[in-house]
Write a protein that binds this DNA or RNA. Structure first.
Lengths: 342, 342
DNA sequence: TAAGTTTTCTCAAACGTTTGCGCAATCTTA
DNA sequence: TAAGATTGCGCAAACGTTTGAGAAAACTTA
C-alpha cells in the first residue's frame, strides 16, 4: 500500500554512482558531467523522486518556514492580515506556520517556544493585548531568529516592526468633522493600556489645538470595547453638558454598538449625531446606518510589509553576520469617506 | 552573539555518559537510574536545552504538523474555519501549515506538492471552485498521508470528508417562508457546477412538493455570485409573471446585493419582499435590512470535526496498518431566525 | 561465592541530504 | 611525451536524535 518515497541513495545504487554525485547532479552542480546529470535526472523523474525536506531542513538548519502568531484569527483585521502574509510568504517560497494566542500571555509564550523548537527561520507577531513582559521574545534573539512585530507592537526598544500610526488618521478625522461644522466632538477610546488608544487621543488633541479649539477632556471616554462598555460610554457622552454632535469611536464594533444605542434613543444618524470610526470591518459598506468616514489602517499592507521585512532579515542573516539596524516601518492611517449605498 | 543551541551530545560529554542515556533520561525511560536522570535533567535545564525538532522530525519521519489548504482566507467562512482548525490542532499538540489556493487549480496542485515535501502528517483541504481533476490528492495516498476534505469536497469516491448538508436547511427555510404565508418563493442559486447549488435546489424542490405545491422552475435562477450577477437575477425574478414575495439567496453577499437592489426599486424589505439566506457573515446581526432568517452552516464546527477526524486518522495510521473505512461526517444545516436589532 | 537477576548504561546504526577535500581520468600545451 | 591544467566523480563526515541489542555493574539468592 504505502510505498516508501524514493531516496537519493537508491538512485545512486541503481546508477552505480555515489550519492554525492546524485545530489550534485540534481542541483546542476558544475562539476558533474552532462551525461551523468541527464541520467540522474531521468531516473529521478521516473522513480518520482521527491527530496525529503525534513532531511534537508535538518541538514541545513533552515526550514524555509516562518512562524506567525496572531491574537485572534476570527477578527477580520487579522484574517485579512494572515491572508496577505501567506500570500507574501508564498511568493518568496516560504511557508507559514500559524498559531493564535487568543490574547493570552501564557499561551503566547508557549507558542514562541514551539516556534523556536520547530526551527522557524523567522517570526511574525502581533502581540496579545495582555502581554506585559517580553523576555520570551528576547530569547529568540540568542538563536538568531529574527522577529518582526506588526500592528500590535510591544513598547520596547531594539525591535523590528511595522505599524500603523493612528495619529494622522485621527487628525484627519477630526478635521473632517470640524469642516462639516461640528464643534462638539466626542471620542470613545479604547483601554488606556493600549498604545493605539494613546495615539488616537493624541491625534484628537492635536487636531483640536491646531484648529484653535480648546480640548475638552470630558468629551473623551475610555471603554473596554464590549457592547455594554460602549453603551455606558454613550450614556456618559449624551448626558454631558456639551452634548457631542459627532463621535469618533475606537473601532467599527464600538461604532456599531454606539449607533445601535443612538438609534434606540431616537437620534437620527447623520443628522443628530454623526460617527467616524477606525476601519476593521469590510461590511461597513453594506450598512445603512454607519459611520460617515473611517480611518483606514491597511491590514493587508501592514502584513505584506512585515512579511517582506522579515524575509529580508532572514536572507541578510545568512549573508552577513553583522548586526543590522532595526526596521521601523510606519504606515500612515488615512481617512476614507464611506460611500452611501442606497 | 548567536549561541548555538545546546545538544544532547554536549550534555553527554559534560556528564561523561552516552548520548543514548541522555536521550532516555530526558524521556523518563525506565532503564535509567534515578540519579543519572536527575543529573541529566538538571544540566539540561541549566544549559537551556531544547530538543532540535528538525532532527526529531527527520528521525521519526513525522512532523506533528498538518497542512491546511483553503481557497481564500479573507472569506469569513474560511477565516472562522482556520481559527477553529488551529485551535483544534493546538489542543492535540499539532501545528498548522497554512496555504491558500485562491481558487486556482494549478496553485492548489503546487501546494499539495509542497505539503507533501514538508512531510506533513496529514492534510485538510477545502477544494478550489475551479478544480476539476483530483489526481494530485491521489498521489498522497501512496505516501500514506491522510486527507480530510471539508465543506468544499470533491465529487469522488473513497475520501474522508466533513461537510454540511444544505438540503435540510433549505427545506426548513422554505417551510418557514410558507408558514409565514408566502406562496411565491424565488431562489437565487449559485453556479450549477457547485455541489452546494445542487443541494440547495433539491431542498427547494423537496420542500415544495412536501407541501403539495408544484415547483415552478422559472422561480429559480442561477447566478455567478457577483453583484452584477445578483442584480440580473433580481431583475429576472421581479419581471416574472409570478413575482416572488420571498427570495432565498445562495449566500449573504448575494442577499446583500439583492436587498440593495430591492430597496433601490422601492420595495420594502420584510413587507413587499422577504429574504432568507445562508449564513456566511457574522455581521448580518448589525444590518438594518437583512434576511429574516439564515441557514447556518457551522463553519467552526465543520472545521473542528474535520481536524479531529484527521488527527484520529493520523494516530490510527501509526497504530495499525490496516485500511480503515472512509469517514463521512455530515453536519445538518439549520435555519436560524435573525433577531431584530432595533 | 558462584550463579542467576535485575538494574543501569553504552555501542552503533539509522534517518536523507549536503559538501569539503582528494583522487583519477582526461585534456591541453610546449 | 611529460608536465600541468581541467574535468568528473567518490569518500566520508556532519547535522541531532532515537532505539535495538548487548555489556557491565549491582544486587539477590542459595
Amino acid at each position: 500500500m504505502s510505498e516508501k518515497p524514493t531516496t537519493i541513495k537508491e538512485i545512486a545504487q541503481i546508477l552505480k554512482i555515489s550519492t554525492s554525485t546524485v545530489s550534485r547532479a540534481l542541483h546542476d552542480h558544475p562539476s558533474i558531467g552532462k551525461e551523468t546529470r541527464a541520467k540522474v535526472k531521468k531516473l529521478a523523474k521516473d522513480l518520482n523522486y521527491e527530496p525529503n525536506q525534513t532531511a534537508i531542513f535538518f541538514q541545513k538548519g533552515k526550514t524555509y518556514t516562518i512562524g506567525v502568531i496572531l491574537p485572534e484569527l476570527s477578527e477580520v483585521f487579522f484574517s485579512s492580515a494572515i491572508s496577505a502574509i501567506e500570500e507574501a510568504a508564498y511568493n518568496r517560497n516560504y511557508t507559514v506556520l500559524l498559531a493564535q494566542s487568543h490574547d493570552n500571555e501564557i499561551k503566547e509564550k508557549q507558542l514562541v517556544e514551539k516556534m523556536k523548537n520547530h526551527r522557524v527561520d523567522g517570526l511574525l507577531v502581533s502581540i496579545s493585548k495582555n502581554t506585559k513582559s517580553f523576555e520570551h521574545f528576547e530569547s529568540l534573539k540568542k538563536y538568531n531568529i529574527p522577529i518582526v512585530f506588526f500592528d500590535r507592537i510591544p513598547q520596547i526598544q531594539n525591535i523590528h516592526y511595522v505599524a500603523c500610526n493612528m495619529e494622522t488618521g485621527t487628525v484627519e478625522a477630526v478635521n473632517y468633522l470640524l469642516k462639516k461644522g461640528h464643534r462638539t466632538i466626542g471620542l470613545i477610546n479604547g483601554p488606556t493600556t493600549l498604545l493605539a488608544s494613546k495615539e488616537r487621543k493624541e491625534g484628537f488633541i492635536k487636531a483640536m489645538s491646531k484648529n484653535r479649539l480648546k480640548f475638552d477632556p470630558t468629551l473623551v471616554v475610555n471603554c473596554d470595547l464590549t457592547e455594554q462598555g460602549t453603551v455606558e460610554a454613550m450614556e456618559y457622552l449624551l448626558k454631558n453638558k456639551r452634548k457631542p454632535t459627532a463621535i469618533v469611536t475606537f473601532n467599527d464594533y464600538v461604532a456599531l454598538y454606539a449607533i445601535k444605542y443612538a438609534r434606540l434613543k431616537k437620534l437620527e444618524i447623520g443628522k443628530d449625531v454623526e460617527f467616524v470610526s477606525y476601519a476593521n470591518l469590510p461590511l461597513i459598506d453594506y450598512m445603512d446606518y454607519k459611520p460617515v468616514a473611517s480611518v483606514e489602517q491597511f491590514p493587508t499592507l501592514q502584513a505584506q510589509k512585515a512579511t517582506d521585512t522579515l524575509l529580508d532579515l532572514i536572507s541578510q542573516r545568512s549573508d552577513s553576520q553583522e548586526i543590522q539596524a532595526f526596521y521601523k516601518v510606519i504606515i500612515e492611517s488615512q481617512l476614507v469617506e464611506n460611500t452611501k449605498n442606497n
